[in-house]
Design a protein around this nucleic acid. Structure first.
Lengths: 115, 115
DNA sequence: ATCGTTCATCGTCTATCGCCGATGGACGAT
DNA sequence: ATCGTCCATCGGCGATAGACGATGAACGAT
């Protein structure tokens, strides 16, 4: 359902200013708009790659809740998911995250340039 | 929900975990996590400064809804509000927006450095 | 004084979020 | 085969977001 979120970078880089869809940009920010998910991203990057259980222990949230947050991050394309036997591996997609940052930077730039 | 956004230093120091408070970062992204608010930011920057009515006409949303979105953006510190007699003036706070972008860039950087 | 415009706020409704416990599947170990 | 662990998903619950119409205040114009 969120395949379009996995690769909006092309559109973002192809169109210089305000032409990028606000819904796409908003959806990506929505994935970052929860403290637990920010924490997850930090923890994931610190551990380079870890399983759901580890995040659960770090965050002091129910396993189902963490799994939900991870799913949201994966669907947003910010986290890569790799089912490894029993322990699913999650790792930050640095490129995607950098792309979101670029989107925001582009927004800031368009706002500053007054276009 | 965002009263503490005006002075994030206190809450930031209250959280022991990471350098920047995830709640603050998340709250700022939350302000950007709605297409209407993205559009508002674009329109505001394009017009340099405009009143609520103009945004209403541009967005095709009810006036009360737009006023709510503007309030959220103002409370998040991304938009400056200046009551001008009848027509309230809204304009993008470029510095604040750049600051949010810097926060995200810092997050990306921390993720890439593997800290 | 009256009317039209602009805007913020209130009350309400619906949809979604965020959280949890429970469940069941997959797998390793005994 | 059985148990324990890990994980994704389901169902439910409370809280919140987002939308709207209605209302009233502030102001300019007639």
């Amino acid at each position: 359902m969120t395949e379009s979120l996995a690769e909006p970078d092309r559109a973002a880089s192809a169109l210089p200013t305000c032409t990028s869809d606000s819904r796409i940009v908003a959806a990506r920010f929505a994935a970052l708009s929860h403290p637990a998910r920010i924490e997850i991203l930090k923890h994931l990057s610190a551990s380079r790659s870890c399983c759901c259980r580890e995040v659960v222990d770090h965050l002091d949230l129910a396993q189902s809740t963490v799994s939900q947050h991870l799913k949201i991050l994966v669907e947003a394309g910010l986290v890569r998911f790799e089912p490894d036997r029993q322990r699913s591996r999650y790792e930050v997609d640095h490129a995607a995250l950098a792309d979101v940052s670029a989107s925001l930077a582009a927004l800031v730039d368009s706002c500053c340039s007054g276009g």
